[in-house]
């Protein structure tokens, strides 16, 4: 279930070295990958650990970005306060969504969260005086922080490191175990004394909190937000990243975000048919490694070394 400590340390060291070797543009791409890794992992907290697959996390992520840019540019609030508001906004939205959705499961949960996400998108598109309509909001937050591409990467990497650790602790905590229990059998959890909807609500809100942090980073990274950030495609692409990395692996988020964004970058400058290439890649992954890249790697490791795949023996 978990990567062991050497892997995690190696990964962290690798991420720390990225800006030292890459040219500035690729540092931006790496920054983006890190931000989307957090979004992807937040989706995985729900999809992989509670078994509820959400299609509204783009909306939660984007709402955070909207709140940051709006409070910073329109209210003129200091950036730390704006950022806190962004995370709070996303968490509250997630709490609201949770209250409406946690009593459903399976395809109903998927569709209900999809509809909730669409409502957010519709509001961002239509509430022009506040959201700027389809043109979105623009600020000079990043410029006012005076961050170079490398400086921003360093800040983002630091935040992502802390958030990743927090998410890891979250899914490995006693509470995280209850989520896995819910995924395996809700009826049993209830008879053991668990209030399943309450646990799902907490998990949903926490996932929204993490997605909100990703949204704050994205707001700073782009200095811009528009309905395309909260649209369905954003939620879907986050979910695809989670699936590509491996649902229920948490750290698969890094792999999924890397594969999708790097592929998008590489292919879109070669052919305008890049969406097709992405689609085919996704299909190939679904056929040959439906458990995702990390999931597949772990399976292969288990086969060759007979390692306990769930790491319970730790």
């Amino acid at each position: 279930m978990m990567l062991s400590r050497p892997y995690a340390l190696a990964g962290a060291a690798f991420l720390a070295c990225v800006p030292l070797v890459l040219p500035s543009y690729y540092v931006s791409v790496a920054t983006q990958i890190l931000i989307f890794s957090v979004l992807t992992m937040s989706i995985d907290v729900l999809a992989g650990f509670t078994g509820r697959t959400p299609l509204c996390f783009g909306a939660i992520f984007g709402t955070s970005a909207y709140v940051v840019l709006y409070t910073f540019s329109v209210f003129g609030w200091p950036w730390p306060l704006a950022m806190i508001c962004g995370v709070l906004g996303a968490s509250l939205l997630a709490l609201l969504f949770a209250a409406l959705a946690v009593r459903t499961s399976g395809v109903y949960f998927l569709l209900l969260t999809l509809a909730l996400g669409l409502i957010v998108w519709g509001i961002c598109l239509r509430w022009t005086p506040v959201t700027g309509g389809e043109n979105g909001l623009r600020t000079e937050l990043r410029q006012s922080l005076g961050l170079s591409a490398r400086g921003l990467y360093a800040c983002v990497a630091l935040v992502v490191g802390v958030v990743t650790f927090a998410m890891w602790r979250f899914v490995r905590s006693p509470f995280g175990l209850t989520l896995r229990g819910i995924k395996e059998g809700e009826g049993r959890m209830a008879s053991l004394g668990y209030d399943v909807p309450l646990h799902l609500t907490i998990a949903f809100t926490a996932a929204g909190f993490f997605a909100g942090i990703a949204g704050v980073l994205y707001a700073v990274f782009n200095d811009f937000v528009s309905p395309s950030t909260v649209q369905l495609a954003q939620s879907v692409s986050g979910l695809l990243m989670a699936i590509v990395g491996g649902i229920g692996t948490l750290f698969g988020g890094f792999v999924g975000a890397f594969v999708i964004i790097a592929l998008e970058q590489a292919v879109s400058s070669v052919t305008e048919r890049w969406p097709m290439v992405l689609g085919l890649t996704f299909i190939a992954i679904m056929i040959f490694a439906p458990e995702g890249v990390i999931g597949k790697a772990r399976l292969l490791l288990t086969k060759s070394h007979n390692i306990d795949p769930d790491g319970v023996g730790r």
């Binding site: 543009y25 690729y26 931006s28 983006q32 782009n222 395309s228 305008e272």
Partner: peptide, 19 residues
């Protein structure tokens, strides 16, 4: 290709300018 999407457009602008 900006993909008719502002996020992509921004990313591509960055790429053209920085890379």
């Amino acid at each position: 290709d900006d993909a008719s999407n502002p996020d992509t457009a921004l990313q591509k602008a960055r790429r053209l300018v920085e890379q």
